[in-house]
Amino acid sequence: MRDPIATATLRIMDQNDSTESAGTTLSHEDIVKVARLSRLKLDEEALEAARTDLSAILGHVARIREVDVEDVAPMPRPLDTVNRLAEDEPGPTLDRSVVLDLAPVTEGDFIAVPKVLGEGGA
């Protein structure tokens, strides 16, 4: 559970860095926001634990950020390989009963979820 939060938090810190001085301590507000975006329901104790852990991680990252990479091209992955492509041939699907069995609640042929307002993020 920690990794996605950490990744998310790094982006938040990126934003903050541009407006404020680069801090390595997350506020309570920051951690509540990250939890909300990730749809995680954390109690106060868990929030505080996450805040402390993530602040420590960010502290480490802050040190890495001190390295001068001005003229170094970003390397998002360690492989030089490109273009791993699949041919456009339809393959197998899951039986619908399997898909529906994996969902906590279903209604007819559909997965049922609590009412969500808005258009989604895409």
């Binding site: 492509l85 393959g91 699907t93 899951l94 619908r96 898909v99 994996l102």
Partner: peptide
């Protein structure tokens, strides 16, 4: 019919990885 064009990747099952369509 609904939910019949779903495979393990679409359903985000653990261990699945995307491969792009040429």
């Amino acid at each position: 019919p609904p939910n019949t064009l779903v495979d393990p990747l679409v359903d985000a099952l653990p261990g699945t990885l995307p491969v792009m369509n040429r």
